[in-house]
Design a protein around this nucleic acid. Structure first.
Length: 464
RNA sequence: GACGCGUUCGUCUAGCGGCCCAGGACGGCAGGUUCUCAUCCUGCAAAUCGCGGGUUCAAAUCCCGCACGCGUCACCA
């Protein structure tokens, strides 16, 4: 049975797009194999906890369509799915390791640890716990039990080396002397990531761990933990991190990284997923635009690429434009109507759709292009003072039109152009700006038809 | 610094020893369509496949070294 998971920490205000990319692969792999996709909240760092972060994250996963089979919201047979509610489980497992001699108590103070590390770094040694507490473990255990001393549980890294296979990277070998005796259980009773992730992935029967390559260096510790518990290893797949244009790890300093930022701009979840699917993977037939359903069909973790891609918002917008042009006008109308919180009349939006469908790349592009449909322009992108006579002519001709249709408007204006003997381009630019306020607009005749004769005459008359 | 991972057009990528003087997409440029913009169509430029050595009749593809980039070294995830 294939079971995958995404395990976000509510230490940010929302889901990072990189997490969505990872979640997408996890989701696709689970669905492809008729397995389950799980969301688990790893909220073990109470110092960095962001209020409302978890709720927002779960909401974002739903918005984007990566719906979990098991999660804190939906529950499931391995509940709870929030690590802060599983503290007794971690404690039990940490104790088990201590009993087995695979882990030990440590009562060293943060001050001592910091000092120790500084000295090691100064001596150009690898900063590692010096096992002071391990060397007199018996005493420490007694003290801890008798006086109820605050303590942590550390993993005892055995000698030798760790070897494990990664689907993306191949076989990886690490010498254990490079590994630190990692804290498993913190003095506040919360597990560290390392304990939590291993215990939960095992207990929740996760078969494939597809996660960012930032975890590659700590995977040997996880492998040692699995071995210490005597558990079967899951399949590991470490995927590359999304990058900023300067190749550093995608960060909010240099790029919008929160998923809802894109959704709130009117990027479709389908388009975002489609674009993200292309990061480090490519369709076997070279297709670039495809549905989630098709992705699930053709995706294989063996085809994941190793190189870290630069996240390109420009191509994302192009992709979204493709999706916009592809949906039904009625659906696009509704999306825009909802996007602007029903502030603008649905009927007018509906009429404008054919004019703007090929002109917007995301829903937020709509208003800048179409605001003139809802209210007269307040400023004009070219000076119109010297055009008074021309405007008067236009107005007079337009007033003669009985059947207010784009065609009739066009013919009437073309005739006027001919009669006045001026350049069509300049003529229409003046008309465009007086009507829309802007040099760039949807097709003029059609726009004027939608606006209505009265409104158009009014806009022309205002300056006359 | 140590350890690990990576390196094909500006960007995303195809490529798995001959079919590659490297293909597609975004972006760029030019032209066509058009009252603007966009869409659509046509065309162009853009990678000596990080560098240097091997192996081979043949290497972007295999091996070795180097350089560079990134990641990780917490009672953070």
């Amino acid at each position: 049975m294939v079971r995958t998971r995404i395990a976000p920490s509510p230490t940010g205000q929302d889901v990072h797009v990189g997490s969505i990319a990872a979640a997408l692969m996890n989701y696709a792999w689970a669905k492809k194999n008729h397995g389950q996709f799980i969301i688990r909240i790893e909220d073990t760092d109470r110092t960095r906890l962001v209020k409302g972060g978890e709720e927002k994250m779960l909401d974002t996963f739903n918005r984007i369509g990566l719906v979990a089979d098991e999660s804190p919201n939906t529950g499931g047979k391995f509940a709870p799915y929030r690590q802060s509610e599983r503290l007794n489980i971690y404690k039990k497992h940490a104790e088990e390791l201590v009993d087995k001699g695979k882990a030990y108590y440590c009562i060293c103070t943060p001050e001592r640890l910091t000092k120790m590390r500084e000295e090691q770094v100064a001596k150009k040694q690898i900063p590692k716990y010096d096992r002071l507490c391990f060397s007199n473990q018996k005493e420490i255990v007694e003290q801890v039990k008798e006086r109820n001393l605050p303590h942590v549980v550390r993993l005892l890294i055995p000698e030798g080396q760790v070897k494990f296979n990664d689907v993306v990277r191949g076989e990886i070998t690490i010498d254990n002397k490079n590994l630190d005796d990692q804290v498993l259980l913190k003095s506040d009773g919360f597990p560290t990531y390392h304990l939590g992730v291993v215990v939960d992935d095992h207990l929740m029967e996760i078969s494939h761990i597809i996660r960012g390559e930032e975890w590659l260096p700590s995977t040997p510790k996880h492998v040692i933990l699995y071995q210490a518990f005597g558990w079967k290893l899951p399949v590991f797949a470490h995927i590359s991190l999304l990058r900023n244009p300067d190749k550093s790890k995608l960060s909010k300093r240099k790029n919008p990284v929160w998923t809802s930022w894109y959704l709130d701009k009117g990027i479709f979840s389908e388009a975002l997923l489609n674009y993200l699917a292309l990061m480090g993977w490519s369709h076997p037939e070279g297709k670039e635009v495809f549905s989630l359903e098709e992705y699930i069909k053709v995706f294989d973790i063996k085809d994941i690429q190793k190189t870290a891609p630069v996240f390109d918002p420009v191509k994302l917008e192009w992709m979204n434009g493709v999706y916009i042009r592809d949906i039904e006008n009625e659906d696009l109308k509704l999306k825009i109507y909802e996007f602007y919180n029903k502030k603008y009349p649905e009927e007018i939006i509906g009429k404008t759709i054919p004019l703007i469908k090929e002109r917007i790349k995301k829903l937020a592009d709509y208003l800048p292009l179409c605001e003139f449909f809802f209210k007269p322009p307040e400023s004009f992108e070219i000076r119109l003072e010297a055009k008074q006579a021309l405007l008067k002519n236009m107005k007079e001709e337009l007033e003669k039109i009985s059947e207010w249709k784009a065609n009739a408007i066009g013919e009437s204006m073309q005739a006027l152009v001919k009669k006045l003997g001026i350049k069509a381009g300049e003529f229409f630019m003046v008309l465009r700006v007086i009507i829309t306020g802007k040099k760039i607009s949807p097709p003029l005749n059609e726009s004027m038809e939608i606006l209505g004769k009265e409104e158009c005459i009014k806009r022309l008359g205002k300056l006359v």
